[in-house]
Structures are given as C-alpha cells and as structure tokens.
C-alpha cells in the first residue's frame, strides 16, 4: 500500500512538472487544418508549447467553447456565421490589431463581411467552398448539378460531408430554394430529396472525405474544396464541378475567446500564421482558398492550376454562406435525425 501511495505521489509531482511548463497556447481548431510541422516550427521558434484540440463542425466548436470554463482556449477558428453567433453570445473578444505586424498580408476582399463588418472580432484565416467532384473514369456522364446525383446507377457511390447545414442546404439549393430556407414545407421537400439521395450515399464524413475518393471507395463527392484538391493529386481522373444550382462557401477566422489566459501567445501564433511563407506551408498541405496576399507569391503551380483549391475571387463571391437561423435550427435537427 505504501508503495502505491509513493508511486501516486511521484506521478502527481511528475505531472505537476510537465503541466507547469511556463509558456503555452491552447488552440482549438478544425481537424486537418494546420500541418504538424508548422506547429512544431512555431514551438521551436518561440519556445511556446501548443496544446492542440480539434473539432469537425462549427457547432462542435461552439459546444466545446461554451461548455469549457472561460480561459480554457486561447485561439479558435470559427466560420462566418459562427463568428456572428459567438459575438452575440459574448464568447469571443475584440482583437487588438496593433499586436499584429503581418496584418496587411490579409486580402481585403475577405474583410468586412456582414458577420463582423469591421472585423473587430475576427480576421480571415482562409476560405473554403463545397465542390462536387467525380471520377471521370468510372462516371461516364457529365455531372453538372446536384439533381444529377439522384440517378439510381450511382448507388453507394457518393460521399457527403457530415454537416447538417451544408447537406440540407445542398438539398434546398437543388430544389431551387435558398440554402438558408427555414420554411417547413421546403424543408420537408428537402428531407424527401435527401432520403432519395441517401440510397446513393456511401457515407457522411467531414474529417477526411478525401480518403473515400482516393481509395475509390466512392466515385462522387460533395466535399470541401481542399479535400477535393488533395484527392485530385492522388487520382488524376477526378473532375471538379461548381453545380449549377449554387454552392456553399465559408470563411474561417482567427478569433480569441473571452478570458483567454495566454492572449499574448495567441497573438504571436496569429502573426506567425499570417507570415507569407508559413501560410504557404498550410495552404499547400490543406489547399483551401488562400486569403493571404503575401502567400500568393509563393504558391506552387500544382496549387494554382487546381480548380478546386484555387477558386477565383469572382467565383467565390457567387457562393452562398450559411446563416444563423435561430430556433429554426430545430427543424434542421429533425430532418437530420430522419435522414441518418
């Protein structure tokens, strides 16, 4: 018994030591977003330990942020509509831009959106779109719209994101409605549309849908542009489509939670990421739409020539954003529970 107590004491002391490791920054970020290498480089350069946790949807980010004690996280990366919600809920604080030397690197086209018009609380990190991608070796038809996917010959061939707003939004767009429609009849139609589509769906996955396309588990995907681009590097037969009915886009942002304990380190991290060459490493590893002007100079041809990753500013502006719909989210929840 004494030995056990001794062991416990030693362990507690040991864990105490590793915990008190002076400088840390607690980051809550999307899974598959910043390569390990960038984090390690930051740790080496500044001597700050990065505690990295991940989420796979904006809702999960909100849940984690609001259920954890204030001060648990120092930096988060929510998308547009979630920024708006977090400002309303008083979860994030104003960014002191004077702390950031690399501020001017940000592409001004991606500032001043309605969700945070003066960018008081958020700064764009990168932008994403949801694209349709298919394997032209297996799918001989020309797919141009979401409705094409209902064809029964694509049984078990489709991978969708595990994201209720994006998927239900896609159904609404396919039916000619707005992707943020909250009319219960329209949602009913969307549900039926999705139930029909589900016959063809192999899986819902937000974390790594590219794996399904690379391993040829599926031949059609409606997935994040970076995932599509990565899949295209492995499988040259993949074709990208921006569907005729519309597509959803999002801008992911840096945001600092209220009560962040290591706020200076969070600023250091943001500034580090905003460096042209650092962002280049991130963008090349996870080829989303780059919103850093400095980085644009370093990007490889592979990135620039890929239609999925390098979507033009003009094209991006035709996409629709997910918007906050208040308590109507319950209707979406129900549709989601029903189609799953």
């Amino acid at each position: 018994m004494k030995k056990i107590i001794l062991c416990i004491t030693i362990l507690l002391i040991l864990t105490g030591c590793t915990q008190d490791n002076n400088e840390v920054v607690n980051i809550l970020n999307w899974s598959s977003y910043i390569p390990d290498e960038v984090i390690r480089d930051f740790e080496k350069e500044y001597g700050i330990k990065v505690n990295y946790s991940t989420y796979s949807s904006n809702e999960e980010c909100l849940a984690k942020l609001s259920s954890a004690k204030e001060g648990t996280y120092d930096l988060v990366f929510p998308s547009d509509y979630m920024i708006e919600l977090m400002i309303k809920r008083n979860l994030i604080q104003k960014i002191d831009k004077s702390n950031l030397d690399n501020l001017e690197n940000i592409n001004y086209n991606y500032l001043s959106y309605n969700y945070d018009y003066y960018n008081d609380y958020s700064l764009p990190f990168l932008a994403a779109s949801v694209v349709l991608v298919y394997d032209s070796e297996k799918i001989k038809d020309d797919i141009t719209s979401y409705n094409d996917l209902l064809d029964s010959k694509y049984k078990g061939e489709i991978i969708l994101l595990d994201d209720q707003r994006v998927v239900i939004g896609m159904a609404l767009m396919a039916l000619g409605y707005d992707m943020n429609d909250t009319d219960s009849d329209h949602l009913e139609e969307a549900k039926d549309w999705l139930l029909k589509l589900k016959e063809n769906v192999k899986a819902f996955d937000s974390d790594s849908p590219k794996t399904f396309m690379i391993s040829k588990e599926t031949s059609i995907g409606v997935i994040w542009n970076a995932e599509a681009a990565l899949a295209m590097e492995e499988n040259k037969n993949l074709k990208v489509v921006y569907p005729s009915e519309g597509f959803s886009v999002s801008i992911d942002n840096f945001a600092i939670p209220k009560g962040a304990k290591n706020i200076d380190n969070a600023y250091l991290f943001i500034d580090y990421i905003l460096e042209g060459e650092v962002m280049q490493k991130i963008i090349e590893a996870y080829p989303y739409k780059n919103v850093n002007l400095e980085t644009q100079n370093y990007l490889s041809d592979t990135y620039l020539n890929n239609d999925a990753s390098n979507i033009s500013d003009l094209m991006f502006s035709t996409g629709s954003f997910v918007e906050n719909i208040g308590d109507k989210i319950e209707l979406y929840d129900k549709v989601w529970a029903e189609i799953k």
Partner: peptide, 13 residues
Amino acid sequence: GNLIKNQFLVSRN
C-alpha cells in the same frame, strides 16, 4: 449514443 453525442456536441441542446 450518436443522438446524445449530437445533442451535447453539435445541436447544443
């Protein structure tokens, strides 16, 4: 299990 998990981590209900 997924339903409960979703209520706590996704739908925040």
